Amino acid sequence: MLSTKTLFARTVQTTARRALGTTTTRGKHTVPDLDYDYNELEPVISAKIMQLHHDKHHATYVANLNVAEEKLHEAQAKGDVAAQVALQPAINFNGGGHVNHTIFWKNLIGEKNGGGQLHDGVLKSAIENKYGSLDKLQQVVNGKTAGIFGSGWGWLTVNPSGQLDVVTTANQDMPSNIGHIPLLGVDAWEHAYYLDYNNVKADYFKNIWRVINWKDVARRYDEAMSKF
Rank of each mutant, 00 (worst) to 15 (best):
L164D: 05
D196H: 01
V211Q: 00
N113F: 01
N64W: 09
W214A: 02
K215D: 15
A82S: 14
L134T: 06
Y36E: 06
T145D: 10
Q172V: 05
W105S: 03
L20Y: 05
G150T: 12
N113H: 13
V122E: 14
K144S: 04
I45P: 02
K78R: 13
F205M: 10
H58A: 07
I109P: 01
W155T: 05
S226G: 07
A63R: 12
I91Y: 11
W189P: 08
I103T: 12
S133M: 00
L7E: 11
E42A: 14
I208L: 05
D80M: 10
P182I: 15
G179L: 08
H98T: 10
K201D: 05
G132D: 02
A202P: 01
A192T: 08
K112D: 14
G115H: 04
R219V: 09
L41Q: 00
T145M: 08
Q163P: 01
H53M: 06
N107R: 04
G179Q: 11
K28T: 04
W153E: 05
H73Y: 03
G121K: 14
N177A: 14
A126C: 08
H73F: 12
G152Y: 12
G110L: 00
D203E: 14
L184K: 03
S151F: 06
V158C: 11
G27T: 10
R220G: 02
I178E: 10
E128S: 12
T23S: 11
L137N: 00
V140S: 05
G179N: 11
V186G: 00
W209Q: 00
G179T: 10
G143M: 07
D55L: 12
Y131R: 03
V99I: 10
S3N: 10
E42D: 04
L2D: 10
G79K: 02
T169S: 08
V200K: 15
Y221P: 04
I49F: 05
G152P: 04
D165N: 14
N100P: 13
A75R: 05
Q76S: 14
I49K: 07
A170D: 05
M50E: 09
K106R: 15
G95K: 09
W214N: 00
E190L: 03
W209T: 00
K112H: 13
E111H: 02
W214L: 03
K48Y: 09
D203P: 00
G185Q: 09
V158W: 05
P89T: 07
A170T: 09
R219F: 11
D173T: 04
D203A: 10
N92V: 08
V62Y: 03
A63L: 13
H29L: 02
K144E: 13
Q51S: 12
W105T: 09
K71M: 13
G154V: 09
M1R: 05
A75G: 06
Y38V: 04
V217S: 09
A83P: 02
D35G: 08
V62L: 06
F228W: 12
V12G: 11
V67N: 06
Y204L: 03
D216F: 13
G110C: 02
V158Y: 06
L118C: 02
A19W: 11
R219E: 10
